[in-house]
Design a protein around this nucleic acid. Structure first.
Lengths: 223, 223
DNA sequence: TCATCGCTTAACCCTGTCTTAACCCGCAAT
DNA sequence: ATTGCGGGTTAAGACAGGGTTAAGCGATGA
């Protein structure tokens, strides 16, 4: 991950940068608003932490400017100002979150992570062996090839992936696919059969496994 | 806008609901976690406010469950618990923001708005492959040529672009174009057909794609 | 006033998908 | 040995979702 900290208190900045690097997050730093805005325009960060009180250009202006330019990177404002008016002003200028100093580093971390995760489109991706499922795009890829799944087939696969490597009972699967309108015959069997053909046929490793009278699991055979 | 409040303190709930309705935001209410989860599964809210301490099912479990099912609606947790551990636990279960009681109604409002706004997007320009959309000028350009879109056609294209490359459901598209005054027949089909003729006809790459029973997506075929 | 444009509507068709009902097998319990 | 059960495999028909067309209507602007 790649974030930017704009903060004129150099001690604090160093602490924050170090802390983020421990979490294997690259953290650029700018010591004033103008320098920060330049970096924002040149790079594509996953999130930005903005101090409000800064020389040259304050955080509110930086945020408003970047929004004006159409940059929608998530912003978290960091400041000692804690009145309601200050917060409202912050959100009015387009910030996504507002944290008051003094703060816990860990809280800053989880808040920034939450912002960044959303930005990437709540990337919910599953990887089971060489199978990748993208829940946002509603598609699955195995061996670099996008699988041509039917709508129902995809739903079953996603439900399996969500619980992987644990087995999913028949009832859970049926509920995941049909909700409460359950078809009255062995439709699920057939869908599973077809799904297996698409997912496992061209491979020596069968990922869709039948577990006793428990249900089905998506995992590599070794596990 | 359409949000959900899950809160067992009925007095507080009534206050919040009233406050949001003043801002012309429809605010559903559930008095416990189980009821809340049901509403979440049945409806598509712009944001959800979750109390943590509740009978039957606490807010953390509600949040974790909905995320498990792939519902990525923004969540704001509301609670009297203010220790760092509590907050970390909240974010670990998948919340987007965390506000400690007692709180100012206005702060709740702007935070919820910030969460909801991020979903609808505040970006002005989109680029999907060789297609460029300018939401300010309300026009789209492909291969250097400005497309002669009808008003409705443009609205559909913009709605698709905002979620690109993820698919957009029929319902979402209809809502984006007509709001609540929904035409009763297959108007959307026809508009999509016409839109495809304008956008994709002169190109080998068809950007407007049909995704199973999920909806439609704007993305290049390779993805 | 007329012409044009865009929107809605209702048909129609086609294709891919879902359901259904078979039949098959192996295993375990009787 | 037999029976029942859980699961796998097929194929056929029904069905729905989506694509395509054309006609009519209202609004808008010349």
């Amino acid at each position: 991950m790649n974030i930017l900290l704009v903060e004129d208190d150099l001690d604090l900045a160093a602490t924050v940068v170090d802390f983020f690097e421990l979490e294997s997050t690259i953290c650029d730093h700018a010591a004033n608003g103008v320098a920060g805005l330049n970096l924002i325009q040149q790079n594509d960060y996953d999130a930005i932490i903005l101090d409000i009180n800064m020389p040259k250009m304050n955080g509110l202006s930086v945020c408003a400017s970047m929004r004006q330019e159409g940059i929608d990177t998530p912003v978290l404002m960091l400041t000692a100002r804690d009145t309601l008016e200050d917060k409202l002003e912050g959100f009015a200028s387009g910030t996504d979150d507002y944290l008051v100093k003094p703060f816990e580093l860990k809280e800053l971390l989880v808040r920034v992570n939450a912002l960044a995760k959303r930005r990437s489109g709540q990337v919910e991706k599953f990887h089971i062996a060489d199978l990748a499922i993208d829940t946002r795009l509603k598609q699955a890829v195995r061996n670099g090839e996008t699988l041509k799944l039917s709508p129902t087939g995809y739903k079953i696969l996603e439900a399996l992936a969500r619980r992987s490597p644990a087995p999913v009972s028949r009832e859970k699967l049926i509920h995941a696919v049909w909700g409460d309108n359950v078809p009255d015959s062995n439709s699920l069997k057939v869908h599973l059969y077809n799904l297996r053909k698409l997912v496992d046929q061209d491979n020596n490793k069968a990922l869709i496994q039948t577990i006793g009278s428990q249900g089905f699991a998506l995992r590599s055979p070794a596990d």
